[in-house]
Write a protein that binds this DNA or RNA. Sequence first.
DNA 1: ATGGTCAAGTTGTCGGACAATTGAGAACGG
DNA 2: CCGTTCTCAATTGTCCGACAACTTGACCAT
Lengths: 241, 241
Amino acid sequence: MADKQPANNLAEQVMARLGADIRGGRLAPGTRLPTEQDLTTQFGVSRTVVREAVAALRADGLVVTRRGSGAYVADPAAGPFRIVPPRATSLPDIINVMELRLAVEVQAAALAAERASRKQLAAIRTAWRAIDAALQRGEGAVAEDFAFHRAIAEATGNDQFPRFLAYLGSHVIPRQSVRLEVDTPAERRLYLERIQVEHTRIVMAVTGGDPVEARRAMRDHLTRSLERYRKLAGGKKNGRG
Amino acid sequence: MADKQPANNLAEQVMARLGADIRGGRLAPGTRLPTEQDLTTQFGVSRTVVREAVAALRADGLVVTRRGSGAYVADPAAGPFRIVPPRATSLPDIINVMELRLAVEVQAAALAAERASRKQLAAIRTAWRAIDAALQRGEGAVAEDFAFHRAIAEATGNDQFPRFLAYLGSHVIPRQSVRLEVDTPAERRLYLERIQVEHTRIVMAVTGGDPVEARRAMRDHLTRSLERYRKLAGGKKNGRG
DNA sequence: ATGGTCAAGTTGTCGGACAATTGAGAACGG
DNA sequence: CCGTTCTCAATTGTCCGACAACTTGACCAT
């Protein structure tokens, strides 16, 4: 709740206050919020500012406007899900996001093993071979790794999995390059090859239609990756009781 | 991609086109997009419309504006994650969302078993007893059930879990009441009590610090709930290969 | 060459005006 | 007295012009 980052434009301030009122329940869903003119006097700003603020709220799905009638607050939960404020992405935050990713990917592997179509299995194998090719070219294969995980998510037949993973990945993958810098080339090579071994285990479980083994293989794979991050964090515990 | 729902206001149209250009990569991150004046002539609208559109994009985190300099496209993946367009929430969609919820909650139960503090364990037990009390009052205990699951998510010590679950729940829970209507009171009672038995198993595993059992208990619990939905869907497969 | 100054360009904010649409009360007819 | 239609004020959508705050690059003085 402490995202009080002073915006330099009034529209964001108005949007923040109105949005807080909606999310906080002080403006119940269905309620008609004050007219633009009322808001201008209430906030002491021009109508332009008010209109930009409600335009932003409308983009977030928090309000719907009806011309000639007014602006009404929508379901407060219609707002989008955001992982973190774009800035201030500390290492513990990344670990937390990766734990969420692990949860989703483990289940995705199991579902893929249960219901992947022949075409989807082929896509997984193709992505897996692409990693091999990239490694033999001496590359980091981050893009190929991401494509591999996405292929598994798509093989669940549930569109929510690839969509959510794509969203999570965009918040985690970019920093992955930072981590590789601390390794020596030899370590890096060894690490990447071991990763690919873990990938192989996942592919075999999924293609073999063994959800239990697929789940375990994916969990082991991501848990190891997570442990590396934790070491970088200096063994910091994130418990808060 | 087919969300071409004709907006009645120009600002949303402009926002949609600009947003599509950004997400589609036609406007690379860091690029400075045309000045407001250019956009007015390009789209044939007034500056007010352009400014509202840009304000909406800024609310989505797709662009950042610098006064005196211009508007620049941010990381295209900075956009928020949305489950579904608020409308058209069909039963298969709900099932897909619940599968995502299952994935997260199963891992949450395991993490809670590993790292829940004493206070967090007490909160879980309190929520569990609240369900009992509600059932004895003959109520559906939907709010108490949600609070129970949230208590477990909070016991992970990872703030992303309760936040994401709250987001998911807002998209699933409301329709849960629909389902209960199809049951007779006797069926309903029986169902709720069996649910509570499953809850008990989860509580014991988490308080006992047994992540494997907690995971299994939570998975069984949510899988059964999911199966009920699938029966309502008429045994429809959601594979798409 | 370096640093400061200034002017043009751009976004932020203000105010007014009119169009498009809505909602409710007024007027009317039965 | 009830129902229907009409009118009209209120509200959002759009346009326009103006000025302030700020940035950026060019220009100028040293």
